[in-house]
Design a protein around this nucleic acid. Sequence first.
DNA 1: GACGTGAGATTGTTGAACAATCTTGGTTTT
DNA 2: AAAACCAAGATTGTTCAACAATCTCACGTC
Lengths: 231, 231
Amino acid sequence: MLVNDLIRDLPLDEEATHAHTGAWVASVLRTKIAEGQLRPGTKLSEQALAQALGVSRNTLREAFTVLGNELIITRIPNRGVFVASPGINDVKEIYAVRRMIEPAALHWGPKLNVPALERIIKKARTALASGKIEAMATANQRFHEEVVRASGSAQLQELMTRVLAQMRLVFHAMSDAPDFHSHYVELNASLVDMLRDGEREQAATALRNYLDVAETELLSHLEERMDADGN
Amino acid sequence: MLVNDLIRDLPLDEEATHAHTGAWVASVLRTKIAEGQLRPGTKLSEQALAQALGVSRNTLREAFTVLGNELIITRIPNRGVFVASPGINDVKEIYAVRRMIEPAALHWGPKLNVPALERIIKKARTALASGKIEAMATANQRFHEEVVRASGSAQLQELMTRVLAQMRLVFHAMSDAPDFHSHYVELNASLVDMLRDGEREQAATALRNYLDVAETELLSHLEERMDADGN
DNA sequence: GACGTGAGATTGTTGAACAATCTTGGTTTT
DNA sequence: AAAACCAAGATTGTTCAACAATCTCACGTC
């Protein structure tokens, strides 16, 4: 029918700066938040931000709705929008997601790419050896993204990206945090060893244990910083 | 359904200044699409819809961005927005998600609630027995939502809700479809039997096989309707 | 020191406006 | 007659200005 013809050849563009100004603004804010230039809890004033970015308030609000869906900003009605500052419950939610989809991807994912995982491990190791903990942390993140890519699902991968973005916010909220990433590099490597041997189920359960440990470790640090407000 | 028809059965809602008008508009459209009153491929004209719903174009566009994130509408730049008409690739994506998170929830989910699943099975059986296939289909849907609820993750559950909404669109696009749901009621029941016995891993693999079968069955029906445009 | 209270600021929403792009229907060309 | 062309009209993308509703905060009252 007619409408189907129109939908069929959708270019699916993503760049083309003027395609969607709202999406452009969202991506700008997303990276500013991910890089820590906008700290958790910061208020994002509509008027000021719209002027600073050179867009109208309406367009900025469009960006806010997409960032709100990604849970990296918090909208309080008639109060404004703030960079999300994840708390204990948010961390539990993050790990609830990860404990499901990461082991499932390892165990059942149809697009498991062990060589790609090995490359990432190698990169993380050299970064760690040369003391570049920032590069090592991002390599670590890419490792988990690659794991979920094995699922073969774009929506799951997008969810994982969102969850990892929330994780970065957690770390930005705890600037006094110790190095949480370093000692996971070798754990990731051992997972890859199992996968190389075809022991996918074993790798999945190992990853579940690993995530349990990581969660409790993170939570204990969080709990001693926040006084039981639970959020 | 024409947008003019929307005007007719709307004024039931009072003018209770909705917390977020954009979200309210999104929910109205969401249910109209889920119920099949807005068929896949229908064009949603901004001007007409805004007038029909009694909101401004800007507010309507805010609703469009959230529905676009949920993949139940398709936005084509400078062309307009249409009710999504999922194709073969979309069905593959849907099942890629379900094959990951549903078995994972069954296998590992910390909040597995077997009695709740039993109640839903019972409801589906009575609906099937009395020939109410519509009620049976929604019970079936609730079964899978309850499965994912076992994950204990709000984000995964929301993703599942979105995916099931896309599934409904698939069925709405195939109005000539046979009854896909009926013969899954007993399969769901057998899953619950395994779970009642604590055989969670067995239930997980059974569900994976079940989803494989369902996907190929659906795809074969789709492929004979569409001529390999792949989308 | 606790408690209204009102002015000012901020958000939620609207309507109008304009450029850019698409659609349509008629016109020209082959 | 079929294909290419082209201008008028409609639709989308974006901005601006305005207003109501709500919140913030300093101020005065008890």
